[in-house]
């Protein structure tokens, strides 16, 4: 299942809507890394609220996305990790270090806006 990517202002928003296979996640990675420069995005938001499992492959690929997007000049925020999913992740040792996470979409937009305003002023 392909993950839709929306452009909103300087941000790309990818909302995962159902369980993903490994190829779906890889496809998402390639699409985001490609589009971030094409749309001159400053931030990438990946909404994982619908995921009920995040295993080492999903977590590793999300981390890859964050790193590749950074190399392409933008920042990634993962939003909506469910409590039970977070518990399973940390018990597996999958802590997504170096990746910003927020509670939901609204919070991630506020995070980016705050950050870009601060940077814009300085």
């Amino acid at each position: 299942m392909q993950v839709p990517i929306l452009k909103q202002g300087p941000y790309l928003i990818a909302t995962i809507q159902a369980a993903l296979t490994d190829s779906d996640i890889v496809q998402l990675r390639d699409a985001l890394v490609d589009q971030v420069v094409r749309h001159r995005a400053r931030g990438v938001i990946i909404d994982v609220t619908a995921l009920d499992v995040m295993d080492s492959f999903a977590t590793g690929t999300l981390r890859d996305i964050a790193q590749m997007v950074r190399l392409r000049g933008a920042e990634t925020v993962i939003v909506g990790i469910q409590p039970d999913v977070a518990l399973a992740m940390v018990q597996m040792g999958l802590v997504l270090e170096g990746v910003t996470t927020t509670l939901d979409l609204e919070e991630s937009l506020a995070y980016f806006q705050h950050k870009h305003n601060v940077l814009g002023r300085s």
Partner: peptide, 12 residues
Amino acid sequence: ILTVDSARLLGA
């Protein structure tokens, strides 16, 4: 420690 890490994943 797991609680601290999980909370961070949730965004807190």
